[in-house]
Design a protein around this nucleic acid. Sequence first.
DNA 1: CGGGGGCTTGAGGCCACTCAACGATAGTGG
DNA 2: CCACTATCGTTGAGTGGCCTCAAGCCCCCG
Lengths: 227, 227
Amino acid sequence: MFARVNNALQPRPSILTAFGSDGALAARLASSWFEYKKDTEIYEEDEAADYVYEVITGAVRSYKLLSDGRRQIGAFHLPGDIFGLENGSEHRFTAEAIVDTSVQLVRRFSLEAVAKHDAMVARNLLCMTTNKLRHAEDHMLLLGRKTALERVAAFLLEMDSRLAAAGVMLLPMARRDIADYLGVTLETVSRALSLLHSKGVLDFVGNRQRHIVLLDRTQLARFDAQN
Amino acid sequence: MFARVNNALQPRPSILTAFGSDGALAARLASSWFEYKKDTEIYEEDEAADYVYEVITGAVRSYKLLSDGRRQIGAFHLPGDIFGLENGSEHRFTAEAIVDTSVQLVRRFSLEAVAKHDAMVARNLLCMTTNKLRHAEDHMLLLGRKTALERVAAFLLEMDSRLAAAGVMLLPMARRDIADYLGVTLETVSRALSLLHSKGVLDFVGNRQRHIVLLDRTQLARFDAQN
DNA sequence: CGGGGGCTTGAGGCCACTCAACGATAGTGG
DNA sequence: CCACTATCGTTGAGTGGCCTCAAGCCCCCG
């Protein structure tokens, strides 16, 4: 399951600073470093939530399944994102590496122990939960009321703001993942992208279909629904 | 806007106990009592979030709008529910009374001041946010992947668990509200209810179409999608 | 008792889904 | 290094579930 394990403290313990490390925090919290191969499970829904993760490189999908296989991806986790943080004792999603992914992690129990005495850490826990809630609330509007084209446009704008470098983004996820995130089929995603391409809003770089350049963010925003 | 105002402490300050009142809390937090007529706004999206509310009697809908009028209701708030609690400075939804509704409220600022010194109150804030997140996550699965019939069945089961008394529930919300909560049209909701009625799963009491009796919860659960 | 709003039901249309074929790409093994 | 193969993405044709539009009923309320 774990491709590589390293229990030593890493040179960049960002999962600690994310919770508001005050210097003393790093000394009390041991963090580990794991790597997951593409398409391997990190944790499963209803599994005990013993660890909290931060994506260092790669990408992760969090999803729920219905018994007949229908899947809803609730979020993509990109480098710098914290995931797997639960208030209850079990994970509410299954998490899988989308591509080869390295994560840093800390024991949830340790984190809670620190939070009990450090108000700043506790406040950061609340803030992270609030951010996840904000995303979920926006996504409910997308899933409940937006058209297929609007969903794809919104997705591109979200990814652009999260992982674009110099106007180019390399999407780590396949069409099926995008589709299950947006509540449509993969064919519909493909058709929407083709349409946006034909309208001159985006372009594909080289032969790699997941390398996308946004040519005109303003024009793309007009394909999304205005709030 | 406010039908009645009463700044005195109420005999049942449940909004205080909800945050983990230790007796001393009630003394430091002044709570008020307001009433809202049916279909009046309690607060608007992006408005400053100065108060936190608890439904005493009635029902409230929280929703987002797109510029062309499409509406997504994120949650219904029923007696005992806390709503309007934000971590940021502005409300993320518009809240309206569905029927004549009485609420108890406290200043958000006061609550934060107390939370700063009372770890239990702070923990309760996190817990409430977590519960809202859990609901939003489940609702994303419903909106993204369930069929119309499954959505209506899930809605009935949710409402049954929240407001059923002796197998009968009086739904405070209209078909349009249910539709905007489930991401379908009101006609689709009506058709699904008719179908469930014809299958003998539920019945309408008297001539009031919002009085519903669930005849067989087990059978109804089979119309919902299994997780 | 008349008017209006909410609910139901029907008819028809459309958007997204399903099924299918094909091309391109990346990974595999000879 | 190159065929071979599996996977991914695109595109087309046809279907279907939900939406739109409309009519009519019932209840509530003035």
